[in-house]
Computed example of a mutant assay.
Amino acid sequence: MDLDQEGEPMKFLSYMRTLNTPLFSGVANPLDANDWIKRLEKNFDFCKCPTELKMDIAVRFLAGDAIHWWQKVERVSYMKKTWTEFKKGFKMRYLPPEARDSIEQHLIKLIQGSMSVREYESEFWRLLYFLLDDNDYNNNEKADIRRFIRGLRPDIRIHLISADFNRLTDVIRKAILIEENIQEEKMRKAATATFTFGSKAPCTDHASTSRKNKLGKKKNCLARGGHRVGPCTICPSAEVCYNFGNQDHISRNCKNVEDPVMPPTKRQALFAPASSSGNKDPVTGKQV
């Protein structure tokens, strides 16, 4: 073997590392095991790695329990050390038939819950791709469409359940649009509730429920459509003059009137202390 041939494994191993091929540590999750072997095969195809080198390179990306598994395999003298045998042994160890049954049940029971449609779609495809590699799986797109729709949230599912779809991708696209419309409607309603003119919420930031202007009329918030006085959720920092409604100052700083002080209320006049200067009784009008 010449030097160029001896350097081939290292060259392709370097290519695989450049492609960020992950290590496989022998996790119990069959989905992760399936993702790893698929990623390995895609990277091999991309760098055009020769078949006779694939097994030796794949072993360099094993770790933990997977290393121990391979060491046991190597001690079996009758097993052929080829890429095909490596994949067969790997699937028997980490992707057994019972794992396939578990994934299928997971797919059947999968629901959207708090996930977005895109997140739900991603998990659905991950499970489905695992099963599509199984020759025993009945690849029926109509059945997959029914499974996908059944797992959607009720407010989305109700718009799809009676429609007739032939492709799963069409269902997913429609579900995403419905979810976006629902979110936009929620935002619109929230904005309407916050900025509705004529709100009866109290507004205490720039008027008081007990204060009146000089004409004896209760002051309204002038900043947003004249809603009643009390806490204002729209213009909490506004300052309104109680005398003329201007928003650049408050009544005690008003320069538009000679005496901006508010007149006494009836209660203040009724219970005002009597003086010796001949004041009249506020009720009878007689001199006291």
Rank of each mutant, 00 (worst) to 15 (best):
N140P: 04
F165R: 08
N279E: 13
T18G: 11
K142R: 13
C47T: 04
E185A: 12
G278P: 07
K54G: 01
V27Q: 09
C235S: 13
K81P: 00
T169R: 11
L107G: 10
D134W: 12
N243I: 15
L215N: 14
C47I: 09
S210E: 13
L270E: 05
N43W: 00
S77P: 01
P202L: 06
S210D: 15
K72F: 05
F195Q: 01
H206E: 02
R93G: 00
I250P: 01
I108V: 14
Q112F: 02
R173Y: 10
F124A: 09
R153D: 13
N279L: 06
F271L: 09
Q5F: 06
I234P: 00
A201S: 04
L132C: 09
T84L: 10
C241A: 06
S276L: 09
S102K: 13
T194E: 11
A201V: 08
H227E: 02
R126P: 01
D164M: 06
M187A: 13
P282Y: 11
M16L: 15
A163M: 12
L127V: 01
D101L: 12
R118E: 15
K142M: 13
G285Y: 10
N139P: 00
E141F: 05
I67D: 05
L40F: 11
F148I: 07
E123F: 01
W83S: 03
G225T: 02
R100K: 14
F124W: 03
V59P: 01
L40N: 02
M16Q: 10
K88M: 08
E179F: 02
M79C: 05
V240N: 12
R167F: 11
L168C: 08
D155N: 12
R60P: 00
Y242E: 14
E141T: 14
K200Q: 06
E184S: 10
E123S: 12
I145R: 07
R150A: 14
T284A: 07
S77W: 05
L13E: 08
V229I: 06
K186L: 08
E185V: 03
K212H: 15
E74H: 02
D56R: 07
G198T: 03
A272N: 06
H159L: 05
E104S: 13
A163G: 01
K109Y: 08
F24M: 06
A207N: 10
W83F: 15
D101P: 00
E104L: 12
R39P: 00
I67E: 11
Q5W: 04
V288F: 08
F86S: 02
F46D: 04
A33C: 12
N181Y: 04
